[in-house]
Amino acid sequence: MISKLTPLAAGIALSIAAGHVAAELQTRTVNYTVNGTDFTGYLAWDDNYEGKRPGVLVVHEWWGHNEFARDQAEKLAEAGYTAFALDMYGSGKVTDHPKEAQQFMEEATGDIDALQARFSAAMEQLKKHETVDDDHIAAQGYCFGGAVVLNMARLGMDLDGVVSYHGSLGSPIEPETGDITARIQVYTGGADQMVSAAQVGTFTTNMQEAGADFSVTSFPGVQHSFMNPGADAIAEEYGMPVGYDAEAAKRAWDGTMRFYQQIFDR
């Protein structure tokens, strides 16, 4: 008996016979070391896109390098970028408890030079991937990660742009005019109890004084962690003032995609 293949199955069979592998989303776990400490990152790219493309660093929330950060890297890969969800704490330092997350965050932010070294090492991991145009790099971060990418911009790192989602806007770094070369986008919640209106105002003043190219979008009534679908469970379990907002998350993501198209001229 001879069975007939569907058109899709026939195409797959022909590709296999010809020695071709179907283009698809690719991911890879990357282990690297910074100043004697081990870190674990996550690369994502899509073979449907040919040639070199811009790279985007993804900096996790204060929970550490978790599934949410990796999911964001995969979304960027599907949009045509090569993304690297980096690790700012060290391999295995990930939690779902606020007290431990606070401890991890304070340890990481206690030394800005060490923080920059970790970010720089991750950027080099991204740049050396064969799909990446290493002249075109951006970074986006969430919560703790949002503060990190803004601080890297303040330090004048060679980035085309940075995007902060519900990240802290305060910083001990005081850039002078011309120090910030990266373009900046900030998305924040109007009801975010961790990022006050006063903090937004101070950030705006500081960026204007530094001559930065930046924008701030505030979503009325939206709480902290609005990008993360897991925020509602955290709010319920620990009584934290956080919450997912699907509309704000979509608007922020769509705005980010337009931003990358502009800065990378795609």
Rank of each mutant, 00 (worst) to 15 (best):
residue 153 A to Y: 01
residue 179 D to C: 04
residue 127 K to I: 01
residue 207 M to H: 01
residue 239 G to D: 11
residue 194 M to V: 04
residue 262 Q to W: 03
residue 87 D to E: 06
residue 107 E to C: 02
residue 200 V to R: 15
residue 239 G to Y: 04
residue 185 Q to T: 04
residue 205 T to C: 01
residue 62 W to Q: 14
residue 184 I to S: 09
residue 181 T to F: 02
residue 108 A to Y: 00
residue 126 L to I: 09
residue 52 K to G: 05
residue 210 A to N: 09
residue 222 V to Y: 11
residue 83 A to R: 01
residue 40 T to K: 14
residue 75 K to A: 10
residue 158 D to I: 02
residue 58 V to Y: 07
residue 97 H to N: 13
residue 164 S to Y: 06
residue 38 D to Y: 03
residue 111 D to T: 00
residue 230 G to L: 03
residue 180 I to F: 03
residue 18 A to Q: 13
residue 49 Y to Q: 08
residue 141 G to W: 05
residue 243 G to Y: 00
residue 246 A to E: 15
residue 71 D to K: 09
residue 98 P to L: 09
residue 89 Y to D: 09
residue 179 D to R: 06
residue 64 G to M: 04
residue 169 L to M: 11
residue 178 G to T: 02
residue 157 M to D: 14
residue 248 A to N: 05
residue 221 G to H: 07
residue 41 G to W: 06
residue 251 R to Q: 14
residue 89 Y to N: 06
residue 73 A to S: 13
residue 190 G to T: 06
residue 95 T to H: 12
residue 165 Y to Q: 09
residue 223 Q to K: 15
residue 208 Q to W: 02
residue 40 T to W: 00
residue 2 I to N: 08
residue 71 D to T: 13
residue 210 A to Q: 04
residue 144 F to K: 06
residue 188 T to V: 15
residue 50 E to V: 12
residue 195 V to E: 01
residue 208 Q to T: 14
residue 110 G to T: 06
residue 203 F to L: 05
residue 218 S to E: 15
residue 218 S to C: 12
residue 108 A to V: 12
residue 45 W to E: 08
residue 152 M to F: 10
residue 113 D to E: 13
residue 174 E to H: 13
residue 230 G to S: 09
residue 206 N to R: 15
residue 143 C to E: 04
residue 151 N to P: 07
residue 165 Y to N: 11
residue 196 S to W: 08
residue 78 E to M: 10
residue 264 F to A: 07
residue 138 A to W: 08
residue 56 V to T: 09
residue 255 G to D: 04
residue 8 L to C: 01
residue 85 A to S: 14
residue 120 S to E: 13
residue 49 Y to C: 04
residue 265 D to E: 13
residue 251 R to P: 02
residue 170 G to T: 15
residue 197 A to T: 14
residue 205 T to D: 14
residue 70 R to A: 08
residue 103 Q to K: 15
residue 246 A to V: 11
residue 101 A to F: 02
residue 200 V to L: 11
residue 114 A to L: 10
residue 164 S to T: 10
residue 38 D to V: 07
